[in-house]
Amino acid sequence: MVEGGSESQAWIDDEFAASRFSDVRLGRRLRQLVTQMAGAVGGPIPLACQDWANTKAAYRFLSNSEVVSHGVV
């Protein structure tokens, strides 16, 4: 988990407050994935996710056609 959990979670919530998905579960998954990735910055997704179920969920999220980035610099 990320150090300073509540502070990190507040930052994640602020950063992704404008993200909109057709299904609220995608927004929850995005926040969970960012939290996991923050715990393993620079590492591969399987390392950050720590188990097969979370790794598979991360790849499923990233390949979902409903998940698109707009205006990412």
Rank of each mutant, 00 (worst) to 15 (best):
M37C: 13
V68N: 04
A58K: 06
V41I: 15
R25C: 03
D23P: 04
R20N: 09
V41G: 07
P44A: 14
R25Q: 10
W52S: 13
G71L: 11
L47R: 15
R28L: 06
V68S: 09
Q9W: 15
R29Y: 00
A38I: 07
P44E: 15
V72D: 05
S63D: 04
S6V: 10
L62W: 08
G71K: 08
E7H: 06
L33D: 00
M1D: 03
A48H: 01
I45R: 01
S19Q: 10
G71P: 00
Q9T: 09
S22C: 06
S8L: 03
E3T: 09
A38S: 10
L30N: 12
N54A: 15
A40K: 04
V41T: 15
V67A: 12
A53M: 03
R60T: 12
K56L: 10
V2F: 01
A17C: 03
R60S: 08
L30T: 09
N54F: 02
D14I: 06
G71H: 15
I45H: 02
R29D: 14
R25I: 03
V72M: 02
V34K: 08
S63R: 13
M37N: 02
G5T: 06
W11C: 07
D23G: 06
V2S: 03
W52F: 10
T55M: 07
V24P: 13
F16D: 03
R29T: 11
G39S: 08
E7R: 12
N64K: 06
F21V: 11
P44I: 12
Y59C: 10
D51H: 15
Y59G: 04
E3V: 12
A53V: 09
S65I: 04
L26Q: 11
V67E: 02
C49Y: 00
G27V: 08
D14V: 08
V72I: 07
V41Q: 10
M37P: 00
E66V: 00
G42M: 11
L47P: 00
V68M: 09
R29P: 00
F61P: 08
W52N: 08
V67M: 04
V68F: 10
R28T: 07
A18F: 07
R20D: 03
D14S: 15
G71M: 03
I45P: 01
Q36K: 10
S63K: 07
D51I: 09
G43N: 15
W11G: 00
L26R: 14
I12A: 05
A53F: 02
E3L: 13
Q32Y: 05
R28M: 06
A57Q: 09
A17F: 11
M37Y: 01
R25K: 14
G71W: 05
E66S: 12
S69V: 15
A40W: 08
T55V: 11
A53D: 13
Q36T: 00
Q32G: 00
A58F: 08
S6L: 11
G43K: 15
